[in-house]
Simulated scan of single mutants.
Amino acid sequence: MSLVIYEAEGKVAVITLNRPEARNAMSPELASALGEAFDQFEADDGLWVAILAGNGRIFCAGADLKAISEGRAAGLITKEEGFGRFARRQRAKPVIAAVDRPALAGGFELVLGCDLVVASTEAVFGLPEVKRSLVASEGGVTRLPRRIPTNIAMELALTGDTIDVHRAHALGLVNVVCEPGQALAEAKALAERIVVNAPLAVRAARRAILDGLETTEAEGFGVAARLGAEIAKTEDFKEGPRAFVEKRPPVWQGR
């Protein structure tokens, strides 16, 4: 059985954690398979958006504590790519998390590593690391306070308690709330709203937002201008206005 299911549907890659018998807990083997899947996605010019999903009753329960207790932690976290070879991965293309069930500990950190989140009413999110004398160091204590108010991030990190999808949505962590079993379908619908746009411009806009968060507003304008100038050199930059004038849908080439 493949630990990660990789499917390409049009311009969208669906990457599914497939270790349901272990609640999709991240083992070294699963981390390796997940990293290879995202390597494949990033290298494929025909794929513009990825969806990260989880098979079974849990999106991802975090690190495989059994593997850690057996001394098999090597590979769970890498210096360059982080937890599951994803949490700190440097990538160009957008990724949507499709969360149908609980995302806990490292599983929540995988979600925080995505650009957009679709979640069902059966999803919950939490950082229970402190209950095991651990620190949520793969995005939990770093990214969460940049996404939601600091005191709420403190609440989650210090109590280890979970929040439901409705509170997560109200806090801005979740883009779309859906019925149980519909997270993947709704994530695909969101992906289709993205892939109708020029892929290089989408990547540049994503990069401008992320880089701009690390700068002053004035520096952020500079980042956006630099990326915009790069897009102006592409064939798609000419195609957009041409398609508008000719009253037809644009045909993006990604170059």
Rank of each mutant, 00 (worst) to 15 (best):
A8Y: 07
K11Q: 14
K11W: 02
V12H: 04
V14F: 03
L17S: 02
N18D: 13
A22I: 05
R23D: 11
M26K: 03
P28H: 04
A37V: 01
Q40E: 08
A43Q: 03
D45W: 03
D45P: 05
G46D: 13
I58T: 15
I58G: 07
G62S: 11
K66P: 02
I68T: 13
S69H: 10
G71H: 12
G75A: 11
E80R: 15
E81N: 15
G82H: 06
Q90S: 09
Q90V: 13
P94N: 07
V99H: 00
V99G: 00
P102T: 12
P102V: 06
E109N: 00
V111T: 05
A119F: 06
S120K: 08
S120M: 12
P128V: 01
E129S: 01
V130H: 14
V141N: 14
V141Y: 12
T150Y: 05
I152A: 05
L156K: 10
H166M: 08
Q182N: 10
A185Q: 08
A187G: 03
K188F: 11
E192R: 15
V195S: 10
V196I: 15
L200H: 00
A201Y: 10
V202S: 10
A205I: 12
T215M: 09
V223T: 10
V223L: 13
A225E: 13
R226P: 03
I231Y: 13
A232R: 11
T234N: 02
F237K: 04
F237G: 01
R248Y: 11
P249N: 14
